[in-house]
Design a protein around this nucleic acid. Sequence first.
DNA 1: ATAGTATTTAAGCAATTGCTTAAACAAAGG
DNA 2: CCTTTGTTTAAGCAATTGCTTAAATACTAT
Lengths: 122, 122
Amino acid sequence: MNTCIRVFADSIQISRCREDLKNKEESFLELADVLNLAGNAVRLKILYLLKQENELCPCDLSDILGMTVPAVSQHLKKLKDAGIVTTKKSGQTIFYSVEEQSQRIISSVLDLFNLPNTIPAL
Amino acid sequence: MNTCIRVFADSIQISRCREDLKNKEESFLELADVLNLAGNAVRLKILYLLKQENELCPCDLSDILGMTVPAVSQHLKKLKDAGIVTTKKSGQTIFYSVEEQSQRIISSVLDLFNLPNTIPAL
DNA sequence: ATAGTATTTAAGCAATTGCTTAAACAAAGG
DNA sequence: CCTTTGTTTAAGCAATTGCTTAAATACTAT
């Protein structure tokens, strides 16, 4: 059987942790969602560029990133569905920018860039 | 043809962005890797727990997280391969903890928790 | 209307993810 | 030695990802 309840397990510690996780379940899912979206090099670059340049259209992004417009558009859709970016129409061009309410978290994520090289295996 | 070079595109802006990205390519890949690993609710919880409790074994984690030991073990392997966590053997028990050199970035990632609810769509 | 430009959507597909179960390893104790 | 305990590895599989190409949509201007 797979009863891996360790002989020397600290059952108080385990229930405390379990309780703690239960209270924060929602937050974990939300944060993981954002990190997962940012955890793709293309999308991370898009977020960086949108923050840096204030706004950009799919066409320019595709040019900058060196990838097809549909590929970029699909990444933008994910970011928009998550409420991380927003759009502004100007003629037939659609400008994407970081949604105001998401600017703090996105800035914080991008600030991780500035940590001294902290990942040994990379 | 798919020549989506916009009529009103700012070609100076585009080359500047392209140049900028080129210089930071490596950093984008590294950061995206870390974010991608943290961008899974189970792994995010594991990192949170390891930081909080200092060290935990796969068995306890499986108990706390309510999932099978192999499932946990496979997540731990990914984190270890990336150099984010490290192990210490004690008898037949293996204790996992956050690798010292990764503690700053992991703490920063977990600090995103404490931002006021910034994700509109979630 | 018609053509051209900017964007999104859809369908297809190889690659990756994250679990499951079963088997293999490793360490300890009877 | 043999069994138990803690852990990892392997194989299988459904679901998801991220691209591709082609088609659809939307707006502009001739």
